[in-house]
Design a binder for these strands. Structure first.
Lengths: 210, 210
DNA sequence: TTAGATAAGTATCTTTTGATACACAAAATT
DNA sequence: AATTTTGTGTATCAAAAGATACTTATCTAA
């Protein structure tokens, strides 16, 4: 737990000493294992999770399909929680831990309180709203206007942009889940990409040829 | 202009006397005619419009098609402006006046300043973020998972829910623009609805049955 | 080493959506 | 009254996406 604490203290968003003291006073630190479901659709959320280490995946579900909303990485929080905690609402999405994660959990009522008290907290909250909104807006435009093959291509190129390697260790099913379609559709399009020499397909990963 | 001022003073979101004084000190009131484009994609926004009277339509565009993001009615503001004004960004959507509208315009830099100073302003901003996010999330889920005929049906029933009449004075082209598809697709589906006795079609309006 | 789970390839068929083109009628404009 | 604009109906064709079903690998764990 000491290590987590150290990690937390390095987060720039909460460097204000008063705020840091307050957070430590009220927060709980929890650990989540890979696959743990932290937020369920319809759930009443009276807490705000801030990721210290690890990665959460937030997605919407519809019968047999799902679609990615966003990932929550270190120093970030979940829009769902923020939204429902602040306004006393229910979550309209699901959140699952993608890897072993360490999470700071705050009681919901503090969010509004600190809004007026701590400028850095205020900024953190608004930055969260803003960037999550932007992400979603972008995703919305993509889903509304672009065919899946284009979205898939963009997904793959965006993926390798943040990595040193051009290997994408993601299964077709996972891609389908992120893009809101089915596995067969993804496999079909990837095969087409392979014919066009854009990728090389392997079990468990995709190699991007640029 | 006096009438506008009176309308403004009745808005509950800004009933805090200090805040009201500040707004009146810094705001400009403008009038927009039907069809006036107030916000363009890519535009740098250094102002925040708050609608006093009338209606703005905010939408995304992609070559020949467009899709509705949300409407901005009285006592509401535009997420685009808020987002780009607060964080010094460019708009990623377009805004057009649907009818003759009266709008209060605030310089962008005040948004952040008042955030910490006036609780009611703080609440207004966060409520805006929250409700716009919810709307968008809902629209996103719809576009991702539901076929157009279902979305169209929901659109029509939602429309009459707020009206006393069951006549929807909207052209097929407008429906296409709101739902992100083309006129022919809408006409085709509506014809199907008519066969199923769900609607009766007329020039310029649609009559919902039951 | 064998059984079960997971990942991927592929064929077939259907439905949905989109693109294009043209006809016709009701408004609006001149 | 004549012309133009706008709104709608519809036919045809093509492409995109989804559903289903079955096969073949590869990996994992008993």
């Amino acid at each position: 737990m000491e290590a987590t604490l150290d990690l937390f203290k390095e987060l720039k968003s909460f460097s204000e000493p008063e705020l840091q003291k307050e957070i430590l006073k009220h927060a709980k630190f929890i650990k989540a294992n890979k696959g743990d479901i932290l937020i369920k659709e319809g759930q009443y959320l009276n807490f705000l999770p801030i990721v210290i280490k690890g990665l959460l995946r937030v997605y919407q579900q519809n019968e047999d399909r799902e679609i990615l909303l966003y990932y929550v990485g270190p120093e970030q929080t979940c829009m769902m929680s923020l939204s429902s905690a602040y306004f006393d609402y229910y979550s309209t999405a699901n959140g699952i831990a993608m890897e072993q994660s360490e999470i700071l959990v705050l009681p919901a009522h503090l969010i509004a309180e600190w809004q007026l008290k701590y400028p850095s907290w205020n900024k953190f909250i608004l930055r969260t709203f803003k960037s999550r909104y932007d992400e979603l807006l972008n995703a919305f435009g993509n889903v509304a206007f672009k065919p899946i093959n284009v979205r898939l291509k963009e997904y793959l190129t965006a993926y390798v942009k943040n990595e040193s390697s051009n290997k994408i260790p993601v299964s077709h099913q996972t891609l389908a889940n992120d893009l809101g379609t089915t596995r067969v559709v993804i496999s079909r399009i990837l095969k087409q990409f392979e014919k066009e020499k854009l990728v090389k397909l392997h079990r468990g990963y995709i190699q991007l040829i640029s």
